[in-house]
Write a protein that binds this DNA or RNA. Structure first.
Lengths: 152, 152
DNA sequence: CACATGACTTGCAATTTGCAAGTCATGTGT
DNA sequence: ACACATGACTTGCAAATTGCAAGTCATGTG
């Protein structure tokens, strides 16, 4: 983009509907493979996913390498540049958690808000140690539909 | 989006190439009108701009009102919900300022990084008081093209 | 009253997206 | 060894979204 504003530059790299979700999956859910991203519950199409992974790699946010244990599988991982998106992602998380209807429980969002630094430190630790246990639980229950009713 | 993750919800609201730039213009450049956004240097098309303004209003991030001094003009303004995107935007700014080639001088980015809280406080003050002097200077010079080769 | 101006529409053409259905190189069970 | 899985992608389109260029339309201004 031509303005050269840092915000604008950021959007050039990951300013679309999917890129940040891939980064989130890598950062806090411990996802590594193509099929994990595909089944992440967001419904991304495989051609778009392939395209975004290529793009994120080309701009240096992630790296891809063949898995040692299984030659069919490819493991994606955030680069040092990629992992430093954590503060921005955390702020987005907190913002929507406070202002929108999401599946993240309120208390959980408040915890993150109070412990930003601890969360970021833990995120970084997990990245360094390749610890892929999810930092954030799966948010199973839909929050505001009291009955199992689906009136539509 | 179906996952209900706060990040995903955020992207539903402003996860495209333009929305955040409009929010940035409102937040730190003091822009208020359609034509200011159109001439912001990012090159947005007028139909897209109209569409995004409508959308941002419909999700409660901005409000529009006819200007008192000039009945042709419409002033857009961030809502309380909109202005609280400041921390997220600031992190994006800092991230790209550190990791990418932008027009924001390094020292400037470092200042923001060191004084996050002061910057956010000032941003909020400006919003409350409707102070529309730009918080961030225009970043005139292109940083890394030594040749002045662009004779128009 | 004849222009400007600001804020949008409208009409397309060019992209970009989203399925569905392959392909292709491994791995696995018998 | 051979028949199937599996994981990671392509390919082929149709459908939706974008990006110009060119209006429209309600104010303002000299």
């Amino acid at each position: 983009m031509r303005s050269g504003c840092p915000v604008s530059v950021s959007l050039d790299l990951f300013g679309d509907r999917w890129s940040l979700l891939i980064i989130r999956d890598l950062m806090v859910r411990g996802y590594k493979t193509f099929s994990e991203f595909r089944n992440s519950g967001e419904g991304i199409a495989t051609n778009i996913l392939a395209d975004r992974l290529r793009h994120l790699e080309s701009v240096g946010l992630i790296v891809a390498e063949r898995a040692a244990e299984d030659g069919r599988s490819i493991h994606y991982r955030l680069t040092p540049k990629g992992i430093t998106l954590a503060p921005a992602l955390l702020e987005l998380f907190i913002w929507a958690g406070r202002h929108e209807q999401t599946r993240a429980p309120r208390e959980f969002v408040e915890q993150m808000e109070k412990n930003r630094d601890a969360i970021l430190a833990e995120t970084h630790r997990r990245w360094e140690e390749r610890d892929s246990t999810p930092l954030i639980p799966p948010f199973k229950p839909t929050p505001k539909t009291p009955k199992g009713k689906k009136p539509r």
